[in-house]
Design a binder for these strands. Structure first.
Length: 425
RNA sequence: GGAGAGGUGGCAGAGCGGUUGAAUGCACUGGUCUUGAAAACCAGCAUAGGUUUAUCCCUAUCGUGGGUUCGAAUCCCACCCUCUCCGCCA
């Protein structure tokens, strides 16, 4: 969340900045709550101080063998007053906390203005869409014909927005995953982590999915407040929750492969065909925690790390800077990587790389200790490196041949056990 | 699943109703000493909030949430977690 001190000391700035996102902040409400808080907090603390002093005096009197009764008589209604004050303070503070937790992050100055994805800015492109001298198929037709993709089976097993992969296409997805992990580990210096796919509420508050976006999540009904992870970002970033990391260990760079589970509430009718928008998909995620002064450069580097995967796969893509209105809740700035999909004749998102500044770190108390100094908040970054399911789509569509077969990209050959082309037998 | 033990500062670990925000050790920071380093010695060193120009001062925090009490790290209740032994199990 935002720094409460910043909201208090410079509310106009916060309001102006958040207006860029189209978020209106109730200035009067903030003033009212803060004034209340201040008054109640002061009285509460005064009462507490009074109680502490009295109790101490009783202790001293007893220790010296005196009769503490006269002091005890003075206590009177102090306890009742204190209870009341403490309750009031509690109410105000939770109202403030609820209000502040609901405020998104302040955007980086370089984020372009705009309301919707229409206003996002293309930053650069890489490669160019291939020309096909035959009629291209989309991944669903290709995958189905190759007997590697079965959506009807998934519907039978579970319901819509799931897929069954089989044979060489299932293997291709695994190859992509391995290739991504190995590249980030060996070439980009990330540490691989394996984490739980189920997390508690605290973790989801930490990264910002809760309290505002619960409808996007799958919640378990065990009564423990457990949720399926919507992205590895949640468990991996929360490794740092309530931790103080020695400065010398920074930056921390993690890469993590997990399935991701999203309810996709509110996206009915969108991308209903194929693998693009599923309730369950594989993703290789990059997460970094670093010094505040390094986060801007780190964000560029992390984005480049993700781009490397597309370049090695020789998949044409472009990099988009999300505009103010389209940038995620907790992010200061986000780049989306969009890969070219011949089947759709469009660029589609395959990675989203964000700099969260200290927003997530403040929520989860993720700090570092400067040499000999006081702990202070880390900055966090993350990005997909890449969404595996969508990469599978991109490979199938970009590497398709006139006969419906699919050539394996060169960099994946070591992972495909001798298969060079996926075709029907 | 059964039985037991325990959760305290960056770490280890005392404290088990009253000047205890918390002994001690390690780590860390500064200093003395040294050609330099090590060792030794001296000093400092939790986090968050309120007030303040600043120092000071005040408040909260000993797994979490309740309760008892003038007063709780210490007593009671519930929950969470960890460890040991037995059983079961991929």
């Amino acid at each position: 969340m935002l720094d409460p001190k910043l909201i208090r000391n410079d509310p106009d700035m916060v309001i102006t900045e958040l207006a860029r996102r189209g978020v209106t902040v109730d200035r009067a409400r903030i003033d009212e709550l803060e004034t209340q808080r201040k008054a109640i907090q002061v009285t509460t603390q005064e009462l507490q101080a009074q109680r502490n002093a009295t109790s101490k005096a009783i202790g001293q009197a007893k220790a010296q063998g005196e009769d503490p009764q006269p002091i005890l008589d003075q206590v009177g209604e102090l306890g009742a007053q204190l209870d009341k004050a403490e309750q009031e303070l509690d109410v105000v503070q939770s109202e403030i906390s609820e209000l502040y937790m609901g405020l998104p992050n302040i955007l980086d100055a370089s984020v372009p203005d705009g309301k919707t994805e229409e206003d996002n800015q293309e930053l650069r492109t890489w490669g160019s869409p291939a020309e096909f001298d035959f009629e291209v198929q989309d991944h669903v037709d290709l995958g189905t014909a190759l007997k590697g993709m079965d959506f009807e089976a998934a519907t039978k097993l579970t319901g819509s927005r799931f897929a069954v992969l089989q044979g060489q296409i299932a293997k291709l997805q695994r190859a992509l995953t391995q290739f991504m992990l190995d590249t980030h580990i060996n070439d980009h210096g990330y540490t691989e982590v394996y984490v739980p796919f189920i997390v508690n509420q605290d973790s989801l508050y930490g990264t910002g999915q809760l309290p505002k976006f619960e409808e996007d999540l799958f919640k378990l009904e065990t009564g423990q407040g457990f949720y399926l992870i919507p992205t590895a970002e949640v468990p991996v970033t929360n490794l740092l929750r309530d931790e103080i990391v020695d400065e010398s260990l920074l930056p921390l760079k993690y890469v993590c492969h997990t399935p991701c589970f999203r309810s996709e509430a509110g996206s009915y009718g969108k991308d209903t065909r194929g693998l693009i928008r599923q309730h369950q998909f594989e993703k290789v995620e990059l997460v970094q925690a670093l010094l505040p002064e390094d986060s801007v450069a780190g964000h560029e580097q992390l984005t480049a790390d993700a781009e490397t995967i597309l370049q090695k796969l020789k998949l044409p893509y472009r990099v988009i800077t999300l505009c103010a209105g389209d940038t995620g809740f907790a992010s200061t700035k986000t780049y989306d990587l969009e890969v070219w999909l011949p089947g759709q004749q469009a660029y589609r998102e395959i990675s989203s790389c964000s700099n969260f500044g200290d927003y997530q770190a403040r929520r989860m108390k993720a700090r570092y200790r400067p040499k000999g100094g006081k702990p202070s908040l880390l900055h966090t970054l993350n990005g997909s490196g890449l969404a595996v399911g969508r990469t599978l789509v991109a490979v199938l569509e970009n590497y398709q041949q006139a006969d419906g077969s699919v050539v394996i990209p060169e960099v994946l050959l070591p992972y495909m056990g001798g298969t060079e082309v996926i075709k029907t037998d």
